[in-house]
Design a protein around this nucleic acid. Sequence first.
DNA 1: GTGAAAGCGCTAACAT
DNA 2: ATGTTAGCGCTTTCAC
Lengths: 335, 335
Amino acid sequence: MDRKTATIQDVARIAGVSTATVSRTLSKPSVVAKSTREAVLDAVAETGYRVNATASNLRRQRTGTVIVLLPNLANPFFSQILAGLASVLTPAQLGMLIADTQSGPDPEERLRHYLTSGQADGLILLDGTLSPEALAIPGRPPVVLACEWMGHDLPSVRVENARGAALAVGHLARLGHRRIGHVTGPRGNVLTETRLEGFCAALQELGLPLDDHWVLEGDFSMDSGAAAGRAWLGMTDRPTALFLSSDEMAIGFLGEVQRAGIRVPEDVSIVGFDNIEIAQHLSPGLTTIRQPRTQIGVRAAELLLAMIETGSLTGPSELIEVEFIVRGSAGVPPA
Amino acid sequence: MDRKTATIQDVARIAGVSTATVSRTLSKPSVVAKSTREAVLDAVAETGYRVNATASNLRRQRTGTVIVLLPNLANPFFSQILAGLASVLTPAQLGMLIADTQSGPDPEERLRHYLTSGQADGLILLDGTLSPEALAIPGRPPVVLACEWMGHDLPSVRVENARGAALAVGHLARLGHRRIGHVTGPRGNVLTETRLEGFCAALQELGLPLDDHWVLEGDFSMDSGAAAGRAWLGMTDRPTALFLSSDEMAIGFLGEVQRAGIRVPEDVSIVGFDNIEIAQHLSPGLTTIRQPRTQIGVRAAELLLAMIETGSLTGPSELIEVEFIVRGSAGVPPA
DNA sequence: GTGAAAGCGCTAACAT
DNA sequence: ATGTTAGCGCTTTCAC
C-alpha cells in the first residue's frame, strides 16, 4: 500500500501515543498498560511497521551481526558448520556476515579489519592459520574459535584431533598393519600438526616404525589426495595402510589407486578423517573419524552468544568428541 | 590505545577541520584540497578511525547488506555459488547475510520477512520452490534469482538445464543405448521439471522409448541416488543407462550398484549433472554436465549490484552455458 | 504508565 | 574548498 515503509512516528501518531511507548511496547510489552499495548499493536498491524534495524543498532551501539571468517567458502566442509551457526544465531536476531580469508591478499589484515571496523558484535573464526597476534586489538568484540589455533587461551570449540588420529592408527594396528603411512594437511595448519602429532605418538606407543617417506604432505583437497596416491604407487617400499588427514584426500587417493588397478582394502587400507556425507556412499565405504560439524557450529554460536550478552571477552572452551566409523576401506594387510 | 573507537568528531578536531570535510575526504578525496586531505588522513591514521557503518547506513538510507536466501546451507552445492557472490559483493562493500529457508517453519514467510524488514539493499534467491507471489511486495528491494523459478519475469541467472539433459541423452544414444532411465530431483522443484522435460523431449526427438518405470524420483541427495540404485537392481527390465539429475545422486547410485557387484560402465552407464569436484575423482570418473557455479554467483551478484546502484527493480536475465564432460561412467551398452 | 527530549555517528544539502 | 546544520529512525534516561 504505502509507498515507503512506516516509521515509529507513524505508528505513534496512529496509536495516539509517543514514540517511546511504541518502542517499549515492542521491546518490553509488560511495562505498558494492556489497553495502550493493544492500540499500538493495532497501529503496527495497520501500517505494517517493522523496526528499522539500522537505527535501532545505531542507538543501541550494536550491529546485530556476527562475522564468520573462514578460509575458503567453496569448501563444503564448512557448510554444515555454517548451518549449525545459523540455527543458533538466526533465532537470536543476529545475522551472519560470512567472509572468506583466502579471497583477499592479506588474511590477517582482513581479520584486523573486521575486528576494528565495529561492524560486528562478535566474530567466529574458522581459520586456524591466522596468528594470535592479530587478535590483540583493544576494544575488539568477543571472538570464538571453532578450529584449532596457535594460542590456546581463547574461548573455542575444538575437536579431539589427536585422539582421532590415535583411533585410526589403533584400528589399523589391530588389523595387523605394521607399515602405516600418513597424508597430512598443509604444513603450518594447526589441524595438520595436531593430527600428525597424534599419529606419531600412537605409532610410537604401539612400537610401530615411522618412516619419513611414508608421511606425505597434502592440503586436504581431493587433488592432493590423488597426488598422494600417485606417490604411493611409485614407492618401492609401500606402506600397507594409510591414515589421511581428511576424507577429501582419502577420496582422491582411493580414486587414483583404484584406477591403477589397486584393490581397496585388499591391497591397501585407508582411513580418512571427517566422515563427510559421501564417505558412506563410496565403494568400498570409507572408514573414517566422525566430526560432528553441525554441533561444532551450534556450540560455537552458543558460546559467542553468551559472551555478547554478558559483554565478556572470555569464556569456556569446549572439546567435542570424535567417533571412529568402521566401513570397508580398511582391512587386514596383504599377505 | 584508546579505550573506545574514535568518531568522525575526534578526527575533525585533531585535523582542525569540520566533520563534513572528514567525511568528504574519505568518500570523495578529489574534492578536498591536498593539504587538508593530508591533515585529515594523518588524523585518521593517528586515531585509527574507521567509519561507523551503522551510522553511515542509517544516514544514507541503505543497509550495506545483501540477503542470500538458499534452501539448505548444509548442501555443498551452494558453497561455490556463495564464493562467487562474495567475490563481487565484498569489494563493493556489501556484506552477505545468509539465510536458510529450510531451518524455519514457513519459507515464504521468511522471504516476506526479509523483503519487508528493510534489512537489506537487495536479495539473491537460490531457492526455486518459493512461489512468485511472495515477491509481490511494495517497496521491496531488488531481487535476483540464481535459480530456476516459476514466474520467469524477474532478473535471473539461469543455466541451460533442458539442454544439459538433452546432451546427456544424446551422448548415451550415440553410444548405442536405447533403454535410458532417469532419476529426477524432488517433484515440484523447477530444476527437476526442466531437466525432466529436456530428458523426455530428447528421447522423443531421437525416437527412443520412454518407460514410466524408468523414471525414478529422487531428491538430489546421495541417499536418494542409492535408493534409486536399489530400485534399479530390483528391476526385471533394467535400462542400460541412466541420466541422474544431480552428481550427488549419481554418486549414491554408483556406490550402491558397485557394492552389489555391478560394473560401471560395462553393466550400466551413468551420467550425472553438476560436475561437482568429486566427479573426476571417482572410479570410474563420472560423465556429467558442468554448471559453472562460481560464475553463476558472480553474475548474479553483478546483476544485483547494477540494480542497487541504479535503484531499479528490473534488469536483464542471463542464461549460462553448460558443458558436457565425458569421463568413464558411460560406455557402450552390454551385449 | 507515559511523554519529552537528547542524542547514537554519520552524510548531504545549503551556505559561504 | 570548507563549514553549518539538519536530520536518518530509534531507544532511553529523566520527568511527571
